[in-house]
Amino acid sequence: MPEAQADVLTPDEVLIGLAREGDRGAREELFRRHVGIAHRVAYRLLGHEQDAQDAVQDALVKALKHLEDFDGRSGFRTWLLRIVTNASLDSGRKRRRRPTIRIDEAETGGVETAIQDDPALGMHRDDLKKVLYAALDRLSPPIRATFVLFAEADMSYKDIAALQDVPVGTVMSRLHYARQKLQSYLDGVEGIS
């Protein structure tokens, strides 16, 4: 069989063992296997491409440098996403002074909405992004992270609970709360059908 398939079958735990012994190839495989989801989570938390890439890189450096701290109680992906989430939220706190788009600006920013990427939604994709990230920006970091980990990373309630050190019930309550807030923001924006 081709080598690529053999790589796919190598469990993370085996790669971690090799990487701890200094195997560069194992480190690279762990990086490539998880960098995509790490990027998506960071982007959803920060709403900014360069900030997301910086946060992902910080997180991966920390994770790969401190693999001995991975105790195997959760999966490697969960452990890594905890580091990515913390790095992203730290980055978000640092850049909080940077002007952000508020939802009212996103609505009335004079953006032409005639070109629609998704006619069912009635708005251009870039405009939808502005509205969505303005809405996400109004959630507190732990609640935003709960929603992003569930909706973007498809994590189970149990894994999110382990990642955030909260009970499963709190995860579910946070998800409901986040939806209430996000949906009410979206409802207040004209143009989304």
């Binding site: 939808l128 996000l182 949906q183």
Partner: peptide, 12 residues
Amino acid sequence: DKLNRVWNATRP
């Protein structure tokens, strides 16, 4: 459903 559609339409 609307939030889900917005979420999916804005995938990074």
